[in-house]
């Protein structure tokens, strides 16, 4: 049985380093996301508290989670590209 990918994948010496970085960023985001869920479960009234510019915690935390995912994506890509360039020179 053939199980190789649809296209030939070249060897990636940066794979394990990229994987480690991915796991770290995943845990950082998971902790922040869990914080949001935890406030909803234990202290939902906190969600309505005004924080900055008349916006409550629910809005700032919710928008923050979306923006953070985008920012972390770019950071991850920046470091992965750097590692690939450095370790896959040959």
């Amino acid at each position: 049985m053939l199980h190789e990918p649809a296209v030939v994948i070249s060897t990636d010496n940066a794979a394990s380093k990229k994987s480690k970085l991915g796991i770290i960023l995943f845990f950082v985001y998971t902790v922040i996301y869990s914080g949001f869920v935890l406030i909803g479960l234990t202290k939902p009234e906190l969600m309505g508290l005004e924080l900055i510019g008349g916006q409550n915690i629910a809005i700032i935390y919710g928008f923050g989670l979306i923006v953070l995912a985008i920012v972390m994506g770019f950071i991850y890509n920046y470091f992965c590209t750097k590692m690939e360039k450095k370790l896959n020179k040959n």
Binding site: G22, F26, Y29, Y33, I66, A69
Partner: peptide, 15 residues
């Protein structure tokens, strides 16, 4: 739902 749907992509990207 918007927050959760997007957060799911973090798992997709990083892992």
């Amino acid at each position: 739902y918007s927050i959760g749907y997007l957060a799911g992509w973090v798992v997709a990207l990083f892992l």
